[in-house]
């Protein structure tokens, strides 16, 4: 951010909610500086055992995709249509009423029509129609279908990583179509092609290996908490003695790992410590499962989290 943070007025003045003259299928994707993240570095993906880990950059023309990327994509998509009722349903029933269109903060902030949830979903729906519906196979463009090309894939990637899965669109949709679920599923497919972003793959790998997204190792956690305990003692004169990874505790306490590391989260952590001490709870911290948030956004990670939670309970 060498240029400095722009003022809100400067940002809003460049927004134009009027879509371009060319239809969205004819408008090529433009990777705008500042609107996308780096490609995931291979080590992160290798940590969690994801395929096709490699060095690549979204702005490059060559994404170093595997030869059979199209088959992988379509096969994964077909599988997920059968596995997720929501995905199948959300592909079929959208009436394009546009109620969600101006609800997405990516759209509000950029004015890019493909950031309208309906159109972001349409990007994958057009592929769905081409390969999974009879009408799309027969009528093609007139049925709203299009071929899955490399450009389409890049477009999908670009826009499916412009979604925070906040689900505001779903609130306004008359059928509850949820872009967040579509995003999750499409990103799952991208993971099969090694197409993740560094900012997501990193925390995920940290959570998996170290138990929290910041990558705090066990001794760092305990010493950080020690500092907090010192501060508490200084102010209140009471020394609190929490336990770590203690077996047989009644409660396992898991908090977003930011609370252990950076202000103002640390103040929150000090608050818990004092409150639990005052209440006299029988609890313990875990360094193994030390992340309250779930950076998984894909199911295997979700499952891992649940298993280790159980394990500590037992311990």
């Amino acid at each position: 951010m060498a240029k400095g943070t722009p003022k809100p007025e400067e940002l809003t003045s460049s927004i134009d909610y009027n879509p371009p003259a060319t239809g969205w299928r004819e408008t090529p994707v433009d990777f705008k500086e500042g609107t996308f993240c780096h490609g995931a570095r291979p080590s992160y993906l290798q940590d969690v055992g994801f395929p096709n880990a490699r060095e690549w950059a979204p702005a490059d023309s060559d994404w170093k995709l595997p030869e059979n990327w199209k088959e992988i994509f379509l096969e994964a998509m077909g599988e997920r249509l059968k596995k997720y009722r929501s995905f199948q349903l959300f592909m079929d029933i959208c009436v394009r009423c546009g109620a969600c269109a101006d609800k997405c903060h990516f759209f509000i902030g950029t004015g890019d029509p493909k950031n309208m949830p309906v159109l972001r979903a349409e990007l994958i729906r057009s592929v769905y129609r081409k390969y999974f519906t009879t009408a799309g196979k027969l009528l093609g463009k007139n049925a709203g279908a299009r071929e899955l090309t490399l450009d389409v894939l890049k477009e999908l990637w670009y826009y499916y990583y412009q979604c925070t899965e906040c689900r505001r669109c779903s609130v306004f949709c008359p059928y509850g179509i949820d872009q967040a679920e579509i995003t999750m599923i499409v990103r799952e497919i991208f993971n099969l092609l090694g197409l993740n972003t560094d900012w997501i793959a990193g925390p995920v790998s940290n959570c998996y290996k170290k138990g929290n997204h910041l990558g705090l190792e066990p001794h760092t956690i305990t010493s950080n908490i020690e500092y907090l305990l010192d501060d508490i003692e200084e102010i209140t004169g009471i020394r609190i003695e929490p336990t770590f990874n203690r077996k047989g505790a009644e409660i396992l306490f898991v908090t977003p790992s930011g609370d252990l590391f950076g202000d103002p989260g640390t103040y929150t952590a000090m608050g818990y410590l004092m409150l639990f001490h005052e209440l006299g709870l029988d609890y313990t911290w875990s360094t193994y499962a030390s992340e309250g948030g779930n950076f998984g956004f894909f199911t295997s990670m979700d499952m891992a989290k649940r298993l280790n939670y159980k394990k500590t309970r037992q311990a």
Binding site: Y17, W24, R96, P113, M116, L119
Partner: peptide
């Protein structure tokens, strides 16, 4: 304009 853009 937005709805026209998304219409099929």
């Amino acid at each position: 304009p937005q709805v026209r853009y998304i219409s099929l």
